[in-house]
Design a protein around this nucleic acid. Structure first.
Lengths: 115, 115
DNA sequence: CCGTATCCCTTAGGATACTG
DNA sequence: CAGTATCCTAAGGGATACGG
C-alpha cells in the first residue's frame, strides 16, 4: 500500500521551486512591475533565470505579462487572480515559520553538537 | 525596497525539497516504519537518497530514529510532534490543489496551444 | 537489515556578452 | 529596455555494489 502519490507534491513543484516564491512575494507587495525593476527587487537573480521563471509562471497562469510597444519597450508583470489565491497559503506557511522555525534551529544545534 | 527576504523561502527549503513531502506523508499515514519498508512505500527512491533525506529530516527535528540492537538490526522512523504540526499546513496545500490545480492545467493548455 | 561507497550523469543555475 | 545566446560548473540524484 503506497498512499497514492503524495498530493502535496504537485503544488510544491508549482510554487516552491527556486526563486518562484520570491518573485510572487515581490509581485504581491509591489504590484505591476517591469522586468528590470523585478531584477533589482529580487536580489542576485540573473536576467536569464528571471526570464525562465517568468515564462514558467506565465504558462502556469500565475503571472500576467503586458507588452507596451513603445520605444524603448516596456513590459509589466503582475499576479493573476489565480496567484492571489495562493496568498492565504503563504500566510499559513509564514505562521508556521513564526511558531516553529525556532524549534528547527534548536534541533539542528542539538544534532550538530551531538556529533 | 526589497521586501526583506521572502519569509516563505526558509520553510519551503525545509519541507518542499525533493522526496521530503513524500516521506513525511508516508510516515504520517503509516506510522512507525522501518527503512526497507519506507523504501518500498516511497516509489523509486534509492537507499542512498532515502538515507540522505532521513538524516536531514532527523537533523531538522522532523523525524525520530529508533535503533534496536538485534540481529538482524531493526531501525524505525517516525514523525516527531514538530513534524505533526506541519499536517494542517499540508492540508491547506491539498485544499488549494483541489480547488485550483485544474485551473493551472487549463492555463498550461491555453499557453501551449497559443504557441 | 540498514545502510555507506563509488561512479556516472543530467540539469538547473550562474556569468557574460550581445541584439531587436 | 527586455530579454536571448553561449558557455560553464557544480550539486544533487540515480545505479550499483559492497560492508557491519
Amino acid at each position: 500500500m503506497t498512499f497514492d502519490p503524495c498530493p502535496v507534491t504537485p503544488v510544491a513543484e508549482l510554487v516552491f521551486g527556486k526563486w518562484t516564491t520570491q518573485v510572487l512575494w515581490t509581485l504581491a507587495h509591489h504590484g505591476r512591475t517591469r522586468f528590470t525593476e523585478l531584477q533589482r527587487l529580487v536580489p542576485a537573480i540573473t536576467p536569464k533565470v528571471l526570464a525562465q521563471r517568468l515564462r514558467q509562471m506565465e504558462r502556469d497562469g500565475l503571472v500576467g505579462r503586458t507588452y507596451h510597444a513603445e520605444m524603448p519597450p516596456r513590459v509589466e508583470y503582475e499576479m493573476t487572480p489565480l496567484a492571489r489565491t495562493l496568498l492565504p497559503v503563504f500566510h499559513t506557511l509564514v505562521d508556521w515559520s513564526d511558531t516553529h522555525l525556532g524549534e528547527v534551529e534548536r534541533a539542528r544545534e542539538r544534532y550538530d553538537a551531538a556529533l
